[in-house]
Each structure stands twice: as structure tokens, then as C-alpha cells.
Amino acid sequence: MHEQIRTNEVVCLEDIWVYYNGVTALEGVNLSINQNDFLGIIGPNGGGKTTLLKVILGLVKPSRGKVRVLGDTPVRSRKLIGYIPQLSQFDRDFPVSVWDVVLMGRLGHTGRFKRYSDKDKKVAIDTLEIVEMLDLKDRQVGRLSGGQRQRVYIARALVTESKLLLLDEPTASVDKPMQTGFYEFLQKLRKEQELAIIVVSHDIGVISTYVNKIACLNRRLFYHNSKEITAEMLEAAYQCPVDLIAHGVPHRVLKEH
């Protein structure tokens, strides 16, 4: 914990290898993320992006390598990680309100067999205010728009009082203008709450405008601790020329060459 404060290192992965049923999902991944970093990880579907997040969360145990999160093991630190899973896995008829879902983020703070405390409720209200969803707190989650639901999941991740947000394909089911708004919102949140954020996406478009560091992942991680991605990194990750992907991006990602 002290070490983490001194170095501001939030996540440290050293030579991580993951095998699923004999198939290699991650190959020698090294990654270091500090407080206030906003890292975008792009890569093709099936490139191991979700697996990488699950390694950080301690849901997947690497076959080889060292993981440290907030100066401790992932399992012990994960109460302090705000995880925002992919939106797609969701039953629209599920009888649960926005309020119930946000409070779930407090389960790590409230003991078993206990009701939510007044503090839990206060944190939930404050956080719903931050994500501008307080007036919809009694709405059933299935009757929210994609963007609203995403905000609820962010609130649920934030009430854990986390220092690290992990987002898995956060804008996969949200339209373009909404995506821009969403990333601006994340950017603001990061500055106000001093968070480290990792966003994983197969869509290089919007993500590259807002993040301050970017990595490419296709089993191996291509990362230079900067915002710059070289054509070589992308080609290595996607295994095909990808300069077309950068079209329509407000800021240039690829260097002129």
C-alpha cells in the first residue's frame, strides 16, 4: 500500500501468460499504469482484451507472471476496482431498479446478513448525482437507454470508492454522438476523482481522441507508454494494414509517413 502511494502505480503486470484449454490468450504481457492514467487498449475481437481485464480483477489466474493491483494481489484489491462489464450480457425484464443496481457496488463495504447503511445510501445518492441519473433512480434498469444504463454501471463501479475503473467495450451498443459524450464524461470524472482508467475496445475511432495512453493487444501487448501508436504496432496487433481505421478521427493517431 505504501509502495503504491510512493510510486502512484495502480496496476503492474509482469510477463503475464494465460492459456485456455491449451490455447494461448495472453503472451508475455507487461503493463504498468499510474494514477491519473487513461489507457485505451485496442485490438481485434478474440485478442484477449477481456481476459486482460479479468487478470487485473483476479477472475482469471495467469498461468505465469506477476500481477499487482494497488500494491496487493488482485483478489485482495478488487474491492477497490470499479469494473464495468460489457453491456450486452443483460436481461431487459430483470426486476431491478437503478437504485438497487448502484447499491450493489457497496456490497464489498457492507457485511453479509446486514442491511445497507446510511453511509452506503448517501454514497449512492452522491454518485447518482455525479452521473446525472438521480432523478431516474426508481426506474427499472431494463427501461433505460443504452447511454443511461452505461451511466448506472459507472455509478455502480464508482460507489466502491475505487481508484481504478476498468471498462470493457463501453460504447459497443451506444451511437456515435452518445459515445463522444460518454468519453468526455469519463475524462471529466478522471480529473475530478483522480482515477486511473483502462478502456478496452475493438474500435480505435473514438477511443484514441480521449485517452492519454494507448496500447494494442492481440495476445501480445504493444505498448510504448505513450499516446502514439505506430503503424507497425497496429499491423502487428491486427495482422493487416489498418490505416483506413484512422479516418474520421478528429486528432490524428498515426504519424505522417
Binding site: 477472475l59 474491492k79 469494473y83 431491478v96 438497487d100 450493489m104 457496488g105 464489498g108
Partner: peptide, 11 residues
């Protein structure tokens, strides 16, 4: 509602 998230927060 969300087994994976529940696991992450320590349930």
C-alpha cells in the same frame, strides 16, 4: 442480476 460483478465486489 450480475454474478461476475458480485464476485468482484467480494460476494
Amino acid at each position: 442480476f450480475d454474478e461476475e460483478f458480485a464476485t468482484v465486489v467480494g460476494v
